[in-house]
């Protein structure tokens, strides 16, 4: 499969960095950008997310998630699993799920989409990352690296 994009979404606030740090942690697991694989850290991309996914065969999205789960709990949603969670649209605060809903309506969702949510409690400016979310970031990076290795056999 070609055209894999790994998108870490976040902001500089505490545990909301989870998506960004997962992208960083992937490097430590030996996952690096090449002709067929791009890694990107996005800061609340809104409708931009749609163009970032365009023409990709497989998109792996990682974002922090406030769901009532304990901090550090990882949830995975496939191409269909997230739809029940989408809310209304707002140009000022177009969230990841709303952007995905719009992409679906436009028929531009990638053939394979893995959305990972890392549970967080709260995230405020200048907050530090929690130990639980830090651990989850490393765990998720290892999982994604293994998934990539299984799906795309790579040369030495």
């Amino acid at each position: 499969m070609s055209g894999i994009r790994i998108l870490g979404i976040g902001s500089p606030s505490g545990d909301d960095q989870a998506g960004w740090l997962t992208v960083d942690a992937l490097a430590a697991c030996g996952v690096h950008a090449d002709r067929d694989l791009t890694l990107e850290k996005l800061d609340r991309p809104g409708a931009h997310l749609i163009s970032r996914m365009e023409n990709a065969g497989w998109v792996i999205l990682v974002d922090a998630m406030q769901s009532g789960d304990p901090p550090g709990r990882i949830r995975r949603f496939d191409r269909n699993g997230w739809q029940a969670y989408a809310h209304g649209l707002s140009s000022h605060g177009l969230g990841v799920l709303e952007a995905l809903s719009l992409a679906r309506a436009l028929g531009t969702l990638p053939p394979r989409l893995d959305l990972y949510g890392i549970g967080i409690a709260t995230a405020g400016p200048a907050d530090q990352m929690s130990v639980e979310v830090h651990a989850a970031v490393r765990q998720l990076a290892r999982h994604i690296a293994a998934d990539l290795a299984t799906t795309i056999p790579r040369g030495p």
């Binding site: 649209l89 709303e98 719009l102 679906r104 309506a105 436009l106 028929g107």
Partner: peptide, 12 residues
């Protein structure tokens, strides 16, 4: 806009 995208995808 999600509903609009279903009926006017090219425009959206």
């Amino acid at each position: 806009a999600i509903e609009l995208a279903r009926i006017a995808p090219d425009e959206v």
